[in-house]
Computed example of a mutant assay.
Amino acid sequence: MSEDAKTKTPVLQEQLCFSVYSLSLAINKVYRPLLKKLDLTYSQYLVMLVLWESDQRTVSDIGEQLFLDSATLTPLLKRLEAAALVERVRSSQDERQVIVGLTAQGRQLRQHAAGIMDDMLCAMGCSVEELGALRERLNSLRNHLIQHVA
């Protein structure tokens, strides 16, 4: 690395972390009105996506999939339970585990959420293939960073 590169002051617009951060803010801005129709926050929507994919999941399983700890996830689940979208029950095999399952209302909400991905695709102005490639690259970067700190 050259001496200039070592001492160069970081420039905000050249930082990958800022690009990812500002992209996340922009994505959330587009999601907000779409999810308002479902009466969900973005974080609640992510939990619902996990459960729509595979119902009856442990809290720890949901947390692992979303990269959330239980201190963050538990309040989300409580709000979803208060909205009658999920129910939480202790596992009969292991009392320490809490199983989260969709209610009938939670399953029905999936139909109302069906058009969100199309709306997001349109807003992003990319093809399905372009977004798939970008998602794979971002997931790879995330996995490398997780391994780095492990």
Rank of each mutant, 00 (worst) to 15 (best):
M1D: 10
D4K: 10
K6D: 14
K8S: 05
P10E: 03
L12S: 12
Q13W: 10
L16G: 04
S19F: 08
S22F: 11
S22H: 09
L23K: 06
L23D: 08
L23S: 15
S24Q: 08
S24P: 00
A26N: 07
A26S: 09
N28C: 11
K29N: 13
K29E: 13
K36A: 15
L38G: 08
L40N: 03
Y45H: 15
Y45C: 11
L46C: 08
M48I: 02
L49W: 02
L49F: 00
L51Q: 01
W52V: 01
W52M: 02
E53G: 12
S54D: 13
D55G: 03
Q56W: 06
R57M: 13
T58D: 03
D61F: 00
I62A: 01
E64G: 06
E64C: 06
L66C: 00
L68G: 01
S70G: 07
A71S: 07
A71P: 01
K78M: 11
R79L: 10
E81D: 01
A82R: 12
A83N: 04
A84D: 15
L85G: 02
L85K: 03
R88L: 00
R90I: 06
S92E: 14
Q93E: 12
Q93D: 12
D94Q: 01
R96D: 07
Q97Y: 06
I99K: 00
V100R: 04
L102V: 03
L102E: 03
L102Q: 05
G106A: 04
G106V: 02
Q108E: 15
Q108D: 14
R110D: 04
G115T: 09
I116Y: 00
I116N: 03
M117G: 07
D118E: 15
D119K: 14
M120D: 01
L121T: 07
M124I: 10
E130M: 11
A133Y: 08
L134R: 08
R137Q: 15
L138C: 09
S140C: 10
L141H: 09
L141D: 05
R142K: 11
H144A: 15
L145Y: 13
V149I: 14
V149M: 13
A150F: 11
